[in-house]
């Protein structure tokens, strides 16, 4: 059988690497073939999600931030300073978390999706035209964020002027100074060349980009037990692979950025400098609970407990 798998990034970016490994494991251990569809080839994130729900695609990778319009609780991953920046701790968290492995699958199942795995794509960095050392430096900075209420809330709380822009306009708008900042994981800054049009990269540790891989539920339920196990095994192996692949990825991509643009300034904020950002996080958490109610609060509390466990 031929299975189709679409994701939100290019073939050589993190989601693409995961998908390639997934394909490799499936094809090596069965007669099934997997066709991969990178970013844009079958539509935007929302389009491929719908196609997976309709059963046209067997597998889809959509980040919970985008899934927020379908499953509001998924936006929990946008609450700043919820997730730690330590890669190994994160890897343990996603693997063992009750929220990720038991609670979210139920929510996804209601949408006709079998949640296979969630994995981190790296710490989100801010890139700006002017140095950012405190919230005060974001004052009046038009900062591009994805169209997501929690992200907008976050950057408002940080003091910036959040400016939602379609992805295609980000590079040009930074170049002409319509916006003066944006955020993304380090590998993405390199692959999309956003460093070419900004001068400062700042790590405030406020977020880690999370993504999720799902299968169409009817398709998954209809598989033989053997195939189901194979899919789960491929998801696990690809997870281990992507965690390993990303070790040092942020550093090496950052090095490539610095080689391409030596004058770029990279700053990691100190605990003290982060204080105002962390204070702002409380507002965003409150907003998340306001938006998602009891079910959101339950997930948030469980996530916190799971993170506590992963920290030990």
């Amino acid at each position: 059988e031929t299975w189709k798998y679409a994701f939100e990034e290019a073939m050589e970016e993190v989601q693409g690497k995961y998908a390639q490994k997934f394909k490799e494991v499936i094809e090596a251990n069965s007669d099934h073939e997997i066709q991969l569809f990178p970013f844009g080839t079958l539509g935007e994130s929302a389009d491929i999600m719908e196609q997976a729900q309709a059963g046209i695609l067997q597998f889809v990778d959509q980040s919970p931030g985008f899934t927020g319009s379908l499953i509001p609780e998924a936006q929990v991953f946008f609450v700043p300073y919820l997730l730690p920046t330590d890669q190994e701790q994160l890897a343990r968290f996603y693997k063992n978390s009750k929220a990720v492995n038991e609670m979210f699958p139920e929510l996804y199942a209601e949408q006709g999706l079998e949640l296979l795995t969630m994995f981190p794509e790296g710490e989100v960095a801010m890139t700006t035209k002017e140095p950012v050392e405190s919230c005060a430096d974001l004052e009046g900075v038009k900062f591009r964020v994805m169209t997501n209420p929690l992200l907008v809330e976050s950057y408002k709380a940080f003091g910036a002027t959040p400016t939602p822009l379609p992805w295609g306009e980000v590079y040009g708008s930074l170049q002409t100074n319509i916006i003066q900042g944006q955020e993304n994981p380090t590998f993405f800054l390199y692959s999309t060349k956003l460093y070419e049009v900004t001068d400062y990269i700042t790590y405030a540790g406020h977020n880690n980009f999370t993504t999720a891989v799902m299968a169409n539920k009817d398709f998954f339920d209809g598989l033989s037990e053997e195939d189901q196990q194979l899919v789960e095994r491929a998801a696990d192996e690809a997870y281990d692979y992507i965690v390993e692949y990303q070790k040092g990825l942020a550093d090496s991509e950052l090095k490539k950025i610095q080689e391409a643009k030596p004058e770029i300034t990279v700053t990691t904020l100190s605990e003290e400098q982060r204080k105002c950002f962390k204070d702002a996080a409380a507002d965003v958490e409150a907003k998340f609970i306001e938006m998602t109610g009891d079910s959101g609060k339950e997930i948030l509390d469980q996530l916190k407990a799971d993170l506590q466990a992963a920290a030990e």
Partner: peptide, 10 residues
Amino acid sequence: YGVVSNTSIA
């Protein structure tokens, strides 16, 4: 093109 092919847009 730059984004998809990982090429410098500048």
